[in-house]
Every structure is written in C-alpha cells, then in structure tokens.
C-alpha cells in the first residue's frame, strides 16, 4: 500500500509537495494538516502525505540522544525526497530537517539530507516566498483581532517573521497587534517544559499575560508546541485566550474549538 510514496498525490500539474504533518498535528490537531493541504492546493500544488512519516525526532535529539534518531532521520528523508518540495506546518520541525539532519548524518546520507533540506520549507514561508498564495476573487476572511507568536526555531533558524503577517494581510481581514517582547521564548522548549516545569511556567505565564496586554482575541502561531504550551497555561490560569495555528486562520477554519477549548 505504501510502495510508491507519490501515489496519493492530489491531481493536477503543479509541483508535488510532500506534507510532513508533524507528530503534534497528527496526534493533537489534525485540522492543521487538513488546512495545510487546502492552502497548498490553492496555489496549484499536488499534495502527497507520505505514510512512512511519524516524528522528526526532535524530542530525543534535543535531549542529546543523537545515535537513536539517525535511523529515524534516514527513514524520513527517504519518505520525503521523491517530492519536489517538502512543506511543514512547524518552524522547529522544518529547522530540524533543514539544519540538524545534515549535521547529524555523514557521507551519502548527508548529501541526501542536504538535498531534502534545500527543498524543505515551513508553510508560511512556502506560501510567501516560494509559491505565493493570492486571495484573487475570494472574499477576505473576517477574523477577530490577532496577535502572532513567533516561535524561536522559525524566527531564528529559518528567519520567519514577516511571512505569517503578510499572509494574514493577504488572505484575511483582521487587526494585528504585536506582542511586547515577541522575540522571547514561551518556555516550551520540547522536553524542557517537562524537565524544568517551574521555570517553563514562569516563561509561559509571562507570554500569556503579554498576549493579554495586546487586547487581541486570538493568539496565532506556526508551531503547535508553543501553542499547546500557551493554550494549556491560559486554560490553567483561567485566561480567556483563543489559541490557534496560523493555517486555521488562513483557511477561516474557526468553527471547531480552539486549542484547549471544550466542545
């Protein structure tokens, strides 16, 4: 069933884009992946979802277990490399593939990792810089006010700052207000938040409260790790903050509950 990784591509003539769903979207927020497919198809891409994908290995890698993720990295590279592009709705997973896989691997595998890295993009950067998405004749999506949380990996490993904001302007009708100290980490940090919960709590507390000072209804971001952290803390503190992935906003998919909200 999984023999040809491209056999499930959507029809058309555009470039074939392999979507790396990321484990967090797969498990906790599938709408991020469905919306990503929708956005990519709007630009004329043919989207495939390689079925051999699971997780990019960041939890173990960031904890310092380099050895055990090498086979995982190879498995993912093999699954992604037939496509023309790889698009990922997460800055940190894209950073992992673009920067850390090539460092981790040697020889032939390093070359393959570099080739995949060269065609791998975080989704907002892909939709702005590579195949720009245009609103065209469609009506702008009306949204309540938004503040955008820059994830550290996206911001500093990939230089993603303007892209999500530009996309919101292009596709949506909303007021964007910036977080004070937007360049400061929210305290997620992968396993950090579980290894050092008290310190992480101070950081995410600060983030939730600076989001409140913006007066925005929605806090959006490009990395589910940060968003789960922020939404989870807001819920714990009883702060009313609607936390959503940027792809949900760009598709106007606001009907279902936001992250951490009940049905």
């Amino acid at each position: 069933m999984d023999t040809n990784p491209l056999d499930n591509a959507s029809p058309g003539h555009g470039p074939v884009v392999a979507l790396f769903v990321t484990c967090l979207a797969d498990l906790l927020r599938p709408s991020v992946a469905f919306n990503s497919i929708k956005l990519l198809e709007q630009t004329g891409c043919r989207v495939v979802v390689p079925l051999q994908q699971t997780c990019c290995g960041q939890p173990a890698y960031n904890s310092g277990d380099y050895e055990s993720i090498i086979p995982l990295a190879k498995q993912l590279i093999a699954a992604l490399e037939p496509a023309d592009y790889v698009v990922i709705p997460s800055g940190s997973c894209a950073g992992m593939i673009c920067h850390h896989y090539p460092q981790l691997l040697d020889g032939d595998w390093r070359d393959r990792a570099l080739q995949v890295a060269a065609k791998t993009f975080e989704i907002t950067s892909f939709l702005s810089d590579i195949l720009p998405i245009k609103r065209g004749h469609r009506a702008a999506i009306k949204l309540p006010s938004v503040t955008y949380h820059d994830s550290c990996a996206g911001l500093r490993e990939l230089g993603i700052k303007e892209q999500p904001r530009q996309l919101l302007q292009e596709l949506c009708d909303t007021e964007l207000s910036e977080l004070p100290q937007t360049e400061v980490c929210c305290g997620f940090g992968g396993t950090f938040c579980a290894k050092m919960p008290e310190i992480s709590a101070k950081m995410v507390h600060d983030k939730v409260h600076s989001a409140q000072t913006t007066g925005a209804t929605i806090l959006a971001g490009g990395d589910l790790g940060c968003l789960l952290n922020i939404a989870g803390r807001a819920r714990r503190e009883g702060v009313d903050l609607e936390v959503r992935h940027i792809t949900e906003l760009l598709c106007g998919d606001l009907d279902g509950p936001a992250i951490g909200e009940g049905e």
Binding site: A25, D26, R29, F34, A194, A201, L228, G232, R233, R235
Partner: peptide
Amino acid sequence: GGWTSQRDFPTPQGKTFMQQY
C-alpha cells in the same frame, strides 16, 4: 506530570490525522 503540574494538556481534536487520512 511535568507538563500538567503547570499547565493543562489540550485534548486531542479527534482521531489522528493519519487515521482520518
């Protein structure tokens, strides 16, 4: 426990993406 000591854990949206896909 590390996570939930300081913040709630958001409920998964439904079935996994891979199941649905």
